[in-house]
Design a protein around this nucleic acid. Sequence first.
DNA 1: AGTACGCCCTGGCCGC
DNA 2: TGCGGCCAGGGCGTAC
Length: 272
Amino acid sequence: MPELPEVEVIRRDLVPHIQGRRIVEVSITERRLTRRRGTPAEVAAALLGCRITALRRRGKFLFLDLGQESLVVHLGMTGQLRWAEGRGGVKADRHTHAVLSFEGGGRLLYRDTRKFGEMFLLPTATATESLRIGIEPLHSAFTPRALQQACRGRRSIKTLLLDQTRIAGIGNIYADEALFRAGIRPTRRADSLRPEEIRRLHDAIRRVLRAGIRHRGSSISDYRDACGRPGRFAAQHRVYHRHGMPCRVCGATIRRILLGQRGTHYCPACQH
DNA sequence: AGTACGCCCTGGCCGC
DNA sequence: TGCGGCCAGGGCGTAC
């Protein structure tokens, strides 16, 4: 599933191909894709003839700035953005729900089997505020103190890390991996973490997200970069999808529980 | 206000 | 080999 590192890898992949280029043809074939705002026809008409001035990321959202408006893309669970050079190469299949063609050749394909992803237009100036996204964990403003302030409430720390209005971009994989690296059990109440644990978690979040980007993302099932290649970070996972297997640090058996309806993985010996 | 939970969707897997 | 049923999970709407 595309989380902050995966979206950032895709953003970086796409910049050299589409930044500064003009959209000359648009096809949006899935009504669900634009459900948050507008119809496929309206979004397609608005995109036609626009030049992409910048590609930005905020949490798991990708913004294609077009001047006054931005095309906001969220990949949901199984969304993929794929760059196709020229006319040939990558083919649209029954899960390809949008195709943007660019002046001078090249196409951007949006593909999403489970259709949890979204694509819609927002005014550029207020786009990020209107989405109510929490603090950006790789930004300098994300300090241990900022994490401590985000940790108010009685919920489990795992559930809190998944709350996009508190901290942006962390999903199920990086939440479990960060908590392992911090030595904290996912079931712990967020407001029970001691200052030392907050510091460790803050450090672990930043390290694991940066490592995810460096290894070009986690490909458990569907994730691919903009060139169609899987990421390599899953091989570095300590706990995610490793239940029943020995902990790489202590050898104890990794457990899997349900927390807030999400599969949650941890080492019973390393995490307290 | 903060928290909990059902729902959307489809490929893959399990058991018979 | 075939098929019904269940599961994963991000984020939103609704309920408490």
